[in-house]
């Protein structure tokens, strides 16, 4: 009798645990979002003649993108610049992401101080995107840029 009761307690506990685990799997399966693979491609950002003589050009690249059941216009802001001594290739052109590497706020070019500044936590970057001061852990993300010889447009890989 005692043994039977003990067995039953085990079974009931196991059955409850099974139900709990199944529900847990369901919750995890639904609540953990699917990862979308990011495909990078070249996209026209601005005409190379649009670059102002001093300071970078702010270009907003718009792309239609599925957002759940919604279709949104995903907007990416980049700074296009032509530098005398560029760090990388790209015919002397440089494209920097405007997203602060600290916590993702949108940095802005300060024409008086010749720095990119973040309005959130005070990160400062130089014209090449390197950290000058403040909390950002690394420089602004450098995007691949090229000149399309046919259209004279600067293209950025996003």
């Amino acid at each position: 009798m005692e043994q039977r009761r003990f067995f039953l307690v085990r079974m009931v506990t196991a059955a409850a645990a099974l139900i709990g685990a199944s529900l847990g799997v369901l919750v995890a399966a639904v609540a953990i979002p699917r990862r979308r693979t990011v495909v990078r491609r070249w996209r026209a950002a601005a005409s190379m003649f649009d670059l102002p003589p001093s300071g970078p050009l702010v270009a907003t690249l718009t792309e239609r993108q599925a957002d759940g059941w919604n279709e949104t216009r995903k907007q990416t802001v980049v700074f296009l610049d032509k530098l005398e001594t560029p760090d990388g290739g790209g015919d002397g052109y440089q494209a920097l992401s405007a997203t602060c590497t600290h916590l993702g706020c949108r940095v802005a070019w300060n024409a008086d101080e010749l720095h990119y500044k973040c309005p959130c936590h005070g990160g400062v970057f130089d014209r090449q995107g390197h950290v000058v001061s403040g909390p950002p852990p690394r420089g602004l993300e450098r995007l691949s840029v090229r000149v399309n010889p046919e259209t004279a447009e600067l293209e950025v890989e996003l």
């Binding site: 907007q75 802005a108 309005p119 936590h121 852990p137 690394r138």
Partner: peptide, 25 residues
């Protein structure tokens, strides 16, 4: 894509927000 917007949290998270300014990299 808005430029010139200065983001700030609700006041009771401002202390935490300020703390973040002191820890670089």
């Amino acid at each position: 894509s808005a430029s010139g917007y200065i983001p700030r949290p609700e006041w009771y998270f401002l202390g935490l927000f300020q703390l973040l300014k002191y820890f670089p990299g």
